[in-house]
């Protein structure tokens, strides 16, 4: 118990003194996860909109598959990306393994299905409401997709934030493809894993507290966006 209070105290001091190591790890984490979520949104939104609006044979199976991919185990994704990027792998020549780019790729692969599947749900619900009106106004598939993406924008922000939360909290994939190299690919989750096993509890705990604060903050933000949007836009 004493160990814990001491560690908590040290962790709090690290945070409030803006410890350089701590700050650099947090900054890299945010940068990697932010880039990953951006990439995932660019791919996931159009995919979700397309699946929501169009009807073709095999669509239901594709949706089921997408929903299943939401639960991809991060370590398996990490392993696959590792095999792709390793020197002998098909993308080995780019030398991306153990770089932040590799971590971005892994996280993006992990959360693209989440963003696509959740936005598909959101957009399909809106489509049910809008379909006749938009068809009556002469909107084709592309115009309808763009309209729905814009009109569901507040719900989609929460989708993005859900993806961000998942990316930032993930450890297995970035550990494998990033390698947890000090000052290069060490992010919050991998640092926590390492420092805990080394016994440096204050740094691990400090990072853990920041990570939890970020996740809670992101969720509060999502909630706030929803409430504000409802109040002002109906």
């Amino acid at each position: 118990m004493n160990d814990l209070t001491q560690a908590m105290y040290a962790a709090t001091r690290l945070i409030f003194s803006a410890d350089a190591l701590l700050v650099s790890i947090i900054a890299l984490s945010l940068k990697v996860s932010f880039t990953a979520v951006l990439t995932a949104a660019i791919i996931g939104f159009p995919t979700g909109a397309f699946l929501a609006i169009t009807r073709f044979p095999g669509r239901q199976m594709l949706i089921a598959l997408l929903n299943a991919l939401m639960g991809l185990p991060p370590v398996v994704v990490g392993l696959l990306i590792y095999l792709l990027l390793s020197r002998a792998g098909p993308l080995g020549e780019f030398g991306l393994l153990f770089t932040p780019t590799a971590m971005v790729i892994a996280q993006a692969v992990l959360i693209t299905p989440i963003i696509a599947a959740l936005s598909r749900q959101v957009i399909e619900d809106a489509w049910r409401e809008y379909e006749e009106q938009l068809r009556s106004l002469g909107a084709g598939t592309l115009a309808a997709a763009r309209t729905l993406l814009w009109d569901t924008r507040f719900a989609l922000i929460t989708v993005v934030l859900a993806g961000f939360g998942r990316a930032a909290a993930e450890v297995g994939a970035v550990m494998i493809v990033g390698g947890n190299i000090d000052g290069v690919t060490r992010v919050m989750t991998t640092a926590i894993a390492l420092e805990t096993s080394k016994g440096d509890l204050p740094l691990a705990l400090g990072l853990g507290m920041v990570l939890v604060a970020i996740i809670i903050g992101v969720n509060l933000l999502a909630h706030g966006v929803k409430l504000t949007a409802q109040r002002f836009h109906g």
Binding site: Y130, Q133, L137, G138, A139, A143, D151
Partner: peptide
């Protein structure tokens, strides 16, 4: 329609949307 669908934008933008389409 019996229950018209309003797009999530301003009133005038709703009209302009139809015209642009």
């Amino acid at each position: 329609f019996q229950r018209p669908v309003m797009l999530r934008r301003s009133a005038i933008a709703n009209v302009m949307y139809a015209l642009k389409l």
